[in-house]
Design a protein around this nucleic acid. Sequence first.
RNA 1: GUGGGUAUAGUUCAGUGGGAGAGCGUCAGAUUGUGGCUCUGAAUGGCGUGGGUUCGAGUCCCACUACCCACCCCA
Length: 422
Amino acid sequence: MLTQAPRGTKDVLPGGSYKWQYLESKMRKAAAEAGFREVRTPVFEHTELFLRGVGDTTDIVTKEMYTFKDKGDRSITLKPEGTAGAVRAFLESNLYAEPLPCKMYYLAAPVFRYEAPQNGRLREHHQFGMECFGAKEATADAELILLAYHLLKDLGVKNLSVNINSIGCPACRGKYNEALKSFLHEHEGELCEDCRARMDRNPLRALDCKKEKCQMVVKNAPSLLDWLDDDCKAHFEELQACLKAEGIPFQVNPKIVRGLDYYTRTVFELITNTKDGPLTVCGGGRYDHLVEQLGGPEIPAVGFGMGIERVLMLLDMEGIEIPEPTLYDVFVTYMGAHRMDAFRLVQDLRQKGLKADMDHCARSLKAQFKYANKTGARVTATLGDDEVSQGVVKLRNMENREEVTVPVGEAADAVRRLEGLE
RNA sequence: GUGGGUAUAGUUCAGUGGGAGAGCGUCAGAUUGUGGCUCUGAAUGGCGUGGGUUCGAGUCCCACUACCCACCCCA
C-alpha cells in the first residue's frame, strides 16, 4: 500500500522519461512554428471556475472531480481539463488588452478525473493543449486541427481520422435542443434509462449513446447541422474548405458532441483505430462565450487537448521506437587505488561537455567494464597503475574495440575522435 | 457506479490438499588490468489481508483490499 502509487496514476521512471521528452520537444517545436508560447497554470483552481466554465451538468463536474476544502475553507479542485485554467490566467492578467490573438500552449499538464481506470484511462493523466484567444475566423480552428494532425502523423500515429462537427452558437443550438427534445419525447419508450433521464437536461448526449436501441432512434433524429444559422453554417463551411485545401482527410461526424458545456460551433476529435477499437487521442473545439461567461470581455477562442499517455500508448502499439539518448559518452574504469584520479578525470570530462561517469560501488575492473557495457557507454577510459604513473589514460571504443592511449589532459578530445563525433 | 478476471522472488509465470520452484534480471566467479557469448555459483518469498474447512491449505470455501479488463464517459 505504502509503496503503491494511488489508483489510476502512473510513474514515469528514469528509464522511460526520454519518451516524454521526445514528445515534448516535438510539441514545443510545432507550437513555436505557429506562434504559440507556453503557459503554466496551477494544478488546482477554485472549484467555482469549473462549475461555471466546464458546466455543472456535465459528467466531469458532477461525478469526476477531485474536490476538497483547503485549510482556509475554500473549495479547491484539481484541474479536470486544461482550458478553464488557461482562460482564468488569460483574464487575471488582462492578456486581452494585448494584441490579439493570444496563442498559448501547455505541455504535459496534469489533469485529474475520478473514474474507474482501465486501458488508456487514468485518474491523473497529462495533456498537451493549445488555446487561441481572440480569433473568431475558421482559419484559427483549421490551424489547430492541422497542428494536431501533423504532429500525430509526424510522430508516426497511423489510422488517424479527423472527425469534425459544428454544434452551432447558443441561439441555434437552443432551437435545435427544443426540436431534439420533442423528438426524443416521441420515442421515449425506445430509449435507454440513461438517455431518458438526461433527455431534458442534456439531450445532445443521446446522440452519442452507445446503446443499440438508442442508436436506432437517434439515427432518424433531426441533425444539428440542419439547424445552424447562416453565420454558423458559413463558419463550418470555411473550416471544411481550409481542411480540404490542405488535403487532410476528415469526416463530418454529427455524433461528436464533447462532454464539456462551453463549446460553440466547431468541435473535433482525432480518433485512431486500434485493435481494441477506436481511441480518441485529441479533442477540442471553439468556445466563443467562455471568456465572457467567466467574467471577461466577449472574446472568441478555440483550442484542443491531447493526451500524452494515449499518444505514447499508440506509438507503442504501432511498434514505433523513440530514440533513446545515450547515457554516457565515456565511462571511466579504474584500479582500486586510483579512485581519486578517476573522480577527477570524470569531473574534467564533464566540464568539457561529455556525459561521463565512473564506478561508485567498489567493483572489480571487470565488473566496471560489464557495467559500462550495460549502460551503453560508447567509450571507456581506463586508469591503472601504468597509466597513472605516466599521466595517460587508455581509451577503448566499446563497439569496435579500438584502443588508444593519450595524455589525461587530452582525454575529452580523444573520446570525441574515438566516437566519431569529430 | 455495474459486471468479469487476477493476486507466489526484482520481473514474467509454473505449482493436481502433504518437501516454495523455473526462465529472465541482479550480484559474484571461470588465476595475476578489459564488456557483449558460454559455463558455474549466490542472494532475494509475511504465497495480497483476515477468517473458515482439514491431521495438514500456496492449493478448497467466505469476506475484504488492490490491480487488470469491459460498460459508462473521455484524453
